[in-house]
Computed example of a mutant assay.
Amino acid sequence: MKKRIRQAAILFMAMLSLVSSGCSQTSADKPYKESRFLMDTLIEVTAYGPQAEKGVKEAFSEFERMYALADQYDPNSQISKVNQAAGSSKVAVDADIFAMVEESCQLAEKLEGTFDVSVGPLVELWGIGKKGEYIPSDLELANVLPLVNYKLIEIDKVNHTLFLPKKGMKLDLGGIAKGYAVDKAIAKLQAAGVKSALVNAGGTVRVIGSRPDGKPWRIGVQDPRKPDGVIAKVELAGWDTMETSGDYQRFIMKDNVRYAHIFDPRTGKQPRDMAAVTMIMNNASQGDIFSTALFVLGVERSLVMLKEFPGVEAIFVTLDGKVITSPGLAGKVE
């Protein structure tokens, strides 16, 4: 855990040095900052203005609330209750859990099933970071894959219930909960009257407005092979969200092969083309989904797919270190 905290802190400091460079602060511009370890990552919120402290504390209350609802490792969380009832009964859930599952399934259909919120059995089987160098066999994967299928999830919009029809099915909101919580935190900041802020939740970044000096927020994209390196820089002008998925965030090495925590839910195995995908857009919860899906799809298919989503852009870092951007970022990435 300490290693993950350190890596997240380095990434944020690298980004913060970029967003604040050249900005002379007056007393009115001084930020209120807080950082906490929640949702298995370091979350840092920086806000400006007279209501900054109030907004930041309310933002963290949202992170804590979402964590309590969506933590599949807490047997008392709502998502655990849904998993425990798989194959036996429907479970009424909070509006936020319902919204996350519904949005995940809707986007999964558009993203060719490369993101699947029912991936829980695969996550459990691989146990990246929890089982040492364990690599599941093809037979083990074949036994689990029938349990991974978002199309099987029964979503009752009238009664707000979820039902997993097969015993052993498990929802895992790790690919949406953090981004969704960021969006909720941003809403709290805005409700408090904050006009300038930056939220960083372990690589999911969303901003409010511009920097106190009126310039756009300028964010660095971490080099996936250099924990303290920046491989690209982007000004969030016209966008407010940057979200990265990479094979460097949680992984194991065995026989010089990297096995990351991102799986292709259709095969149960890790994609082998990408090192990282960074989304530039205006929705953190969807950014979480897109970065995972595009990591699985690879550059060529992703560039075709993005034509269907105006305003959604991506920066790809391939395994050999090439940086490729979607057309909408032409001339906007350093």
Score class of each variant (00 low, 15 high):
Arg6Ser: 14
Arg6Trp: 14
Gln7Met: 12
Ser17Val: 06
Ser24Met: 14
Ala28Lys: 15
Lys30Val: 14
Pro31Trp: 09
Leu38Glu: 11
Ile43Asn: 00
Thr46Glu: 12
Lys54Pro: 03
Met66Trp: 06
Tyr73Ser: 11
Tyr73Glu: 11
Ser80Cys: 07
Ala85Leu: 09
Gly87His: 08
Ser88Phe: 12
Asp94Arg: 01
Ile97Cys: 01
Met100Pro: 04
Glu102His: 12
Glu102Asn: 14
Cys105Arg: 11
Thr114Asn: 11
Pro121Lys: 05
Gly129Ile: 04
Tyr134Arg: 10
Glu140His: 09
Ala142Gly: 13
Val144His: 05
Pro146Gly: 10
Leu147Pro: 03
Val148Lys: 00
Asn149Val: 08
Glu154Ala: 07
Val158Phe: 08
Asn159Gln: 13
Leu164Gly: 01
Leu164Pro: 00
Lys167Asn: 13
Lys167Trp: 11
Gly168Phe: 05
Met169Leu: 05
Gly174Ala: 04
Gly175Val: 02
Gly179Met: 05
Val182His: 01
Lys184His: 14
Gln190Gly: 06
Val199Ser: 00
Asn200Pro: 07
Val207Leu: 05
Gly209Leu: 08
Arg211Thr: 07
Gly214Ile: 08
Gly214Tyr: 09
Gly214Met: 07
Gln222Glu: 15
Ile231Gly: 03
Ala237Gly: 05
Trp239His: 13
Met242Gly: 04
Glu243Met: 09
Thr244Lys: 02
Gly246Cys: 06
Arg250Ser: 04
Arg258Ile: 04
Ile262Thr: 06
Phe263Val: 00
Asp264Lys: 01
Asp273Met: 15
Met279Tyr: 04
Met281Arg: 12
Gly287Ala: 10
Gly287Leu: 02
Leu294Ile: 02
Phe295Arg: 00
Val299Pro: 03
Val299Trp: 05
Met305Lys: 14
Leu306Lys: 03
Leu306His: 02
Lys307Gln: 14
Phe309Asn: 02
Asp320Leu: 07
Gly321Gln: 10
Pro327Trp: 05
Val333His: 08
Glu334Tyr: 10
